[in-house]
């Protein structure tokens, strides 16, 4: 039992990471990410963009949200409606009025984006 407790103390340092296969997400059209779309993501237009602050502003359920885009946030260009291959984009693709889907790192706090999909055939 002592040995087991010693092992427990040592292995307690092992961190548990996030999960979710990011690479394939690129090819999943806006609104179709299984277990995310329609449940915990934001889907709607971009209200404002601040390139200098690295933020997007969206209006969700009447609440204005400023969403942080970090170096770790992946931004995908969604061309699926045009039947073209989806690409990797940047914050510059998130123009005012374009439809985006945002998966948040913390679905409850909804302040930092894990990934953003931008519909590229929109206005």
């Amino acid at each position: 039992m002592t040995r087991t407790m010693a092992m427990a103390l040592i292995f307690a340092v092992l961190a548990t990471g996030a999960y979710g296969q990011e690479a394939a997400e690129r090819y999943i059209p806006i609104g179709q990410s299984p277990g995310v779309s329609g449940k915990s993501s934001y889907l709607g237009p971009v209200r404002n963009v601040s390139m200098s602050a690295g933020t997007l502003t969206v209006l969700e359920d009447g609440v204005t949200r400023i969403v942080k885009v970090t170096d770790q946030t992946r931004i995908y260009q969604d061309y699926s409606a045009k039947q073209r291959s989806n690409g990797i984009g940047g914050l510059g693709d998130c123009r005012i009025g374009r439809t985006v889907e945002i998966k948040f790192i913390d679905a409850a706090r909804r302040s930092e984006a894990e990934w953003i999909k931008v519909r590229m055939n929109g206005p």
């Binding site: 979710g20 296969q21 090819y27 999943i28 277990g35 779309s37 039947q83 989806n86």
Partner: peptide, 28 residues
């Protein structure tokens, strides 16, 4: 698995990775 990382979502990623007709991987 993409999406929420669940076994339920796994098939979506598998189709994208392994079922594509071309490497453009365009849904539809």
């Amino acid at each position: 698995a993409p999406g929420d990382g669940s076994l339920r979502a796994f098939a979506t990623g598998a189709v994208i990775q392994h079922f594509a007709k071309t490497l453009a991987r365009v849904p539809g």
